[in-house]
Nucleic acid binder design. Structure first.
Lengths: 244, 244
DNA sequence: CGGCCTGTTGAAACTGTTCAATTTGTGTGG
DNA sequence: CCACACAAATTGAACAGTTTCAACAGGCCG
């Protein structure tokens, strides 16, 4: 993966959110960017650390997790290609959670002072970063509703719907069939369920004719039915802020 | 409540986060601010609406809620005096949740374009708003862990701890005894529990000698024990970003 | 081939829910 | 000051969803 392609990805991400002045594009192109490829389950950042760089996902998936003192885990975000991983760390010094690679992942790292400079110089860049952060907070809120108030089957259906829509919107561009890059244990950790129950719920969704599974690939057989079962309404993803 | 006092509150809020240039202070003082007092359970904003103004809480409490199609509710944030309610709406047009007054509440409303202007002119203001938004996202993540992975008693204890610490830090300044301005039903909605179970759990915490209740007043009898029972670690509140 | 991680299944146990009834508290009007 | 109405808190008993524990199957890699 060469630098100029990566820069193109980043510029395209900003342009998805805002009208990017050509001067800003040039400035982005001149940023010092470091490209790294990481194996699954590598930590990109640990709770309590003070990161120096801000990462952009060129390819692959990552997640944010938090742990209880006795080692129980909650996955609080899934991060997809074309997203900035830690806009947080532009203004917050100590990380409050871990970030881990879900799949093999390629990231482009930008020095935080450089990115802050860019945002302060170009309101458009600032705004694009704002929107990214605010949409993620909105997803957090929807997950709170999901985990707090919906039963296991609805919860799982909701996650599958979100995946489907976000993948379609992201750099991946999948449609109704996609590879769910997570184990059932990870799904459980994202939904506040045990892996055993995840298994049963997935089976139930399959028996109901909403999805079909082959290994980790998920095919949405009946999208309207799945969406209804999930009580899924994509408003919280704020796709209206995508200028495509 | 007169305007100049309110402006002082707002300036103090920014100054808590950043070094605020005196020029910015003057600009804030010249903002057109509208003060409103609202009765409990009044809606400040509804899902799907496009707000024109951004509100700052001068006095009283509010909360964010989301509803499932069949009317189940999840309270996803508690908002305290001295906080901005909808920094979201600076850059996101359609609200993804409701905001409702918890108690009688006084808010100061600023026109969104004026606040955006202010943020674009003064990086310090921009940064203060960023920090507010990022800390709230961090709280969302902690709540996800709380609801997803902790049992009812721990969850409740955690909420009580968070209240205690945030009140102390906020404009209220309470210590180990405070009025919990929520009904048990609202507590349940914030924790993903039924009101019946909230009642039992509160009783259990009292029997364990961690708290004492009189009406809605909560006294933390044994803070270290409550904190331990809650697995509470205040890192996620990012108090290090308070310059007091 | 063996080892290990992931997925699958069953049965029992438990946490939290549901439903329903009762008590307490608070404000209102007579 | 009492009577009444209404919301909130409290309690009990039955029930349901999810977890826990345990065992086994399948696939992948060294």
């Amino acid at each position: 993966m060469d630098i100029s392609t990566v820069i193109e990805h980043i510029v395209r991400r900003f342009a998805l959110r805002v009208e990017l002045p050509s001067e800003a594009r040039e400035k982005i192109a001149s940023l010092a960017i470091k490209i790294r490829t990481l194996e699954p389950s590598t930590y990109l950042l640990r709770e309590g650390q003070r990161p120096q760089r801000c990462a952009f996902i060129v390819d692959g998936f990552a997640y944010r997790q938090k742990l209880t003192p006795n080692g129980e885990r909650e996955i609080v975000s899934i991060l997809m290609p074309g997203e900035f991983i830690d806009v947080q760390n532009l203004y917050i010094e100590e990380s409050d959670h871990d970030i881990q690679a879900l799949t093999r992942i390629t990231v482009a790292e930008i020095m935080i002072p450089a990115l802050r400079d860019l945002a302060e110089t170009y309101p458009a860049v600032n705004q694009a970063l704002w929107i990214d952060a605010l949409v993620e907070a909105s997803i957090h809120r929807e997950w709170l509703l999901n985990i707090g108030r919906r039963n296991a089957k609805t919860r799982m259906a909701h996650l599958l719907c979100e995946f489907c829509v976000r993948l379609k919107t992201s750099a991946v561009g999948a449609t109704r069939a996609y590879d769910l890059p997570m184990t059932q244990e990870q799904l459980g950790d994202a939904l506040g369920l045990t892996p055993v129950h995840v298994n049963r719920v997935l089976k139930a969704l399959e028996t109901d004719g909403l999805i079909v599974r082959r290994k980790r690939q998920v095919n949405v057989v009946d999208w309207p039915a799945l969406r209804d079962a999930a009580e899924f309404n994509e408003r919280y993803l704020h796709l209206e802020l995508m200028r495509r």
